[in-house]
Design a protein around this nucleic acid. Structure first.
Lengths: 204, 204
DNA sequence: CCTACCGATCGGTAGG
DNA sequence: CCTACCGATCGGTAGG
């Protein structure tokens, strides 16, 4: 009985924590991770300020937990489907899933990590470091797929993988930014065209 | 006498306003245009909160005036030197001056308008509109220079000027972002290489 | 997870 | 351009 009650409580807490963090992640792409205040988040989730606060203990812990929730969403929506492919097809799938992710407005402020990176780039601390780490993972994944594509001779082995990663990510980032500023999905088409051209030129 | 006193006062006010706005523009690339608070800005300029506030009348007016100051700095540092060239050389000069502008840390948070655009992209209102207008001017300038280069047969006339503008700006934006996150000026070299390659491929 | 608070800071105003 | 102030909201705490 007491065990069951405790289990229920814990699971209720988990569920409530999840709800809070999903709302927080969406809100943070609009208000920023710093503009995300405990009061507004409490209002958005229908909880009391201190009730919500009790889940995290500090604003910084809330921000870190929010980044974790955003990571999960991104992994599920972009990485998981793209990782089913390999080599050049993986490079294409990562790009296409990213553009689709932004275009479906999974987060109202576009790519969570582009938004967070722009906000935190000049603010030292553990929150910034966490965002940098996620960004680096993404770049490494991209670069790894390019290297595999070169081993398979789907891409010219003389191409610099870091340079190609930089260029493809530039196109993805610009599509995200331009779409948010203009509301025009044509931004995705320009990125697609740029990526297709660049990959064609890098073909073996 | 009274005229001279009034002139002095007005000119003192102008000078003080200028000082405030230069500080505000630099601060805004770190704290954000919204994170830029009147209290912090007053402390940074050595004025009282209400004394500073009297110059603008509202936070929104302060934000708009700050954008105006950032525009002047950008025009002087990037546009003016680049506009001495024409056609393809202007495209190259706009790119190079932009990268130099970011690399010299004219603003501690990199390109003021990249920072502002990322912050305000999801926040409707006159401040956002002003940032969008500046961004559009920049893109139009770029596209115009590309068109001139095509008329002069420095670039292939079959190239889509909007598409090429998108791709070059993507590389500039990625350099700005990566430099701010990594602190590594190698980001500028990757952008330079990408731009040179892309322009070579677009040559007539 | 709540009510009831805390000191600090926010944008803004009154009055000079 | 200042002092002195306003109500609202901030992150966080006490105590349950």
């Amino acid at each position: 009985m007491s065990t069951q009650t405790e289990r229920r409580r814990r699971s209720d807490g988990e569920r409530s924590r999840r709800t809070i963090l999903l709302t927080a992640a969406r809100l943070a792409t609009v208000e920023g991770l710093d503009g995300l205040t405990i009061g507004r988040l409490a209002a958005a989730t229908g909880m009391s300020k201190s009730g919500l606060f009790a889940h995290f203990g500090s604003k910084e812990e809330l921000q870190l937990a929010t980044i974790g929730a955003a990571e999960e969403i991104f992994a599920e929506d972009v990485l998981r489907p793209a990782l089913e492919a390999e080599g050049l097809e993986r490079v294409r799938a990562l790009s296409e899933r990213f553009l689709s992710h932004v275009g479906r407005n999974v987060f109202p402020g576009g790519c969570f990590f582009a938004s967070a990176a722009a906000e935190l780039d000049t603010r030292p601390g553990p929150v910034r470091e966490r965002v940098v780490a996620v960004q680096r993972q993404w770049m490494d994944l991209f670069e790894g797929a390019i290297r595999t594509a070169q081993e398979r001779r789907e891409l010219d082995p003389s191409v610099d993988p870091a340079q190609l990663t930089f260029e493809l990510n530039a196109l993805l980032g610009e599509a995200n930014g331009l779409y948010l500023l203009s509301g025009d999905p044509g931004a995705f088409d320009m990125a697609r065209r740029g990526i297709a051209d660049r990959l064609e030129r890098a073909a073996a």
